[in-house]
Design a binder for these strands. Structure first.
Lengths: 340, 340
DNA sequence: TTGTAAGCGTTATCAT
DNA sequence: ATGATAACGCTTACAA
């Protein structure tokens, strides 16, 4: 097979333990032999076997990245987060292993955990139910939830500041004079939805605007869902002058619905999204949104997980990262002329 | 630590080998003991240690997915391909390990290979240079290049039919009456670029249109590069009436440049992209493109790699997958009215 | 049908 | 400073 420590030890007439020590930079080995070992290691093209190392060290230097299929439909989110995470992991010699798991069968998750193929897990799920968190805690496996708050107090998570971002968005719309603002919500009431929805309601309340249930419509977790939601809003007797879409892809769907109705954005209907994905800038007009620091969320999740891998008795780590309002033409009245 | 085979064997007063055999469904074990073993395995919550298994079997059931950072900028591509690949791998009990590697330092690649953390590699690079292929062959490691043809005859790859897709695109434009068609090309002349460029040229030649060097402009591998390329084309004394963008993101950049010039798509300038990424449908008007079967390319790459892992002495496997022309409003004259 | 024992490649402990 | 040895958890000839 390939070159092992034994090959080096034989060639140098040293014991494998000395070679191992030299290779790993232990100081109880003479400089002479260390140079010798290093030299022949390079000469022979030696590289340690990950499997042997993992078995012995009871550690893999790998991190499981567990996501569900629907993440694919928000590819900008997926790509940025994953690349951020992978890069962060690699800086400390770790790698990311991908797992598609919907979280619907705890058994497959337990199997994953017990196989110890990875040292810990990052979950990228729309919703992490309490019984799964309990199970993870029970198994005593290090984990972090990426991108959303989790109700369970013992869970660690890294999430964007959905509430304050939403509030900024609402204040922006209200400052522009909008009083009838539609909101597209989610069927499952996860924390992300809750935070954005609360921001919507509080934004209205702070402005002294009463909440109209007709202006709140539900979207499903499927493509074109935002399209139907927007149509529903536009069909109202007293339709909204602005629509707050749950996230950018929903906003893009809504954009299409609005345009099909022959309405102008933002003159007839203003439109805002959420997340700050690249795609939100590609529509005409580009869509005002709240941008979350995706790469940093990915990075921070890894760093946090590594801390838990080092010591899983740490109290839960929960971080809210700041977001940024990006005002674009979907809410701003058209400027008189264009410039390069 | 966790439950091992020994725990089961002790509890049942059996040898570890018998337990192992029972667990792995060998037939030279009585049904009674097998049920017993299976039962206590479940009862104790046993799951095999991946590390021990890997070491013993000299196999990891993991596949390395090597990509460079620039893939992040075409997130639709990245997401679809990766999810397709991950799903395909999981159906046969394999997983994907991500590696960011630009291919600029063969050393880090060799290290990766020799560590045998994975059984084989899928490369997702813009360009796979011959010396890297030579190195991979030299190391006798199974690998497949995803998404592009490779010049090296010994390399295995799965790629879309760029040439014929490009030709269809050109015929479509020419049928619409365009004779001055701009093309945005790449600085590095990889096979993908070559194929699309050849399609551009052959499309013109087949229609009896002479090639005008002014209509061929170079883009860089950076954001907004397509924007500048399009402006350069529009600034010509005799500007094109149609632009063939190297890929969809370049087309989106070009779209912006065209709109900024106050020109109408497709009336003043028709626009086509390539790849069929979701984003190409989000612009106004949506962009005509050639769609590649990304998930299938991901899937097929994994299946091909698995074949090579099973037997790397196989002759190189090289597959061209069919693509599909998607005609959208960026090339079609506006219809009189819209419908739901 | 079951058990023994060796080995995968490394690291850690304890002697020397 | 170096070496012998055990151990990590599993699989597989081979023996019984």
């Amino acid at each position: 097979m390939s070159v092992t420590i034994e090959d080096i030890s034989k060639k140098l007439k040293l014991s494998t333990s000395t070679v191992s020590k030299a290779l790993n930079g232990y100081k109880d080995v003479s400089e002479k032999t260390r140079d010798l070992v290093m030299g022949t290691a390079k000469e022979l093209g030696y590289h340690p076997s990950a499997a042997a190392r993992n078995l012995r060290r009871q550690r893999t230097d790998k991190i499981g990245f567990v996501f569900n299929n629907s993440l694919m439909y928000i590819s900008d989110y997926f790509a940025e987060v994953i690349v951020g995470a992978t890069a962060a992991a690699e800086t400390v010699g770790n790698n990311i292993v991908l797992y598609i798991n919907e979280g619907d069968s705890p058994d497959s998750l337990i199997q994953l955990i017990r196989a110890r193929e990875v040292d810990g897990f990052v979950f990228v799920w729309n919703h992490v139910p309490a019984h799964i968190v309990d199970m993870l805690l029970d198994e005593n496996v290090p984990f972090v939830v990426l991108g959303r708050r989790v109700g369970h107090p013992q869970a660690s998570w890294i999430a964007p500041d959905n509430y304050n971002g939403g509030l900024e968005l609402m204040q922006h719309l209200i400052n522009l004079g909008h009083t009838r603002i539609g909101f597209t919500t989610r069927p499952s009431m996860g924390r992300t939805n809750e935070d954005r929805f609360n921001a919507y309601k509080d934004g209205l309340i702070q402005a002294g605007i009463s909440i109209d249930r007709d202006l709140i419509v539900e979207t499903k977790l499927e493509p074109f869902s935002g399209y139907h939601a927007a149509k529903q809003l536009l069909d109202l007797n007293d339709p909204p002058t602005a629509i707050f879409a749950f996230h950018d892809y929903v906003a893009i769907d809504a954009h299409q619905a609005i345009v099909e109705r022959g309405l102008k954005i933002p003159d007839d209907v203003a439109l805002v999204g959420f997340d700050g994905l690249n795609v939100s800038a590609f529509t005409t007009p580009p869509i005002t949104t709240v941008s979350q620091p995706l790469a940093e969320i990915g990075r921070e999740s890894i760093l946090t997980l590594l801390k838990r891998i080092a010591n899983n008795d740490l109290p839960p780590i929960q971080k809210t990262l700041p977001v940024e309002l990006k005002i674009r033409r979907s809410t701003q009245p058209e400027k008189s002329s264009n410039s390069t």
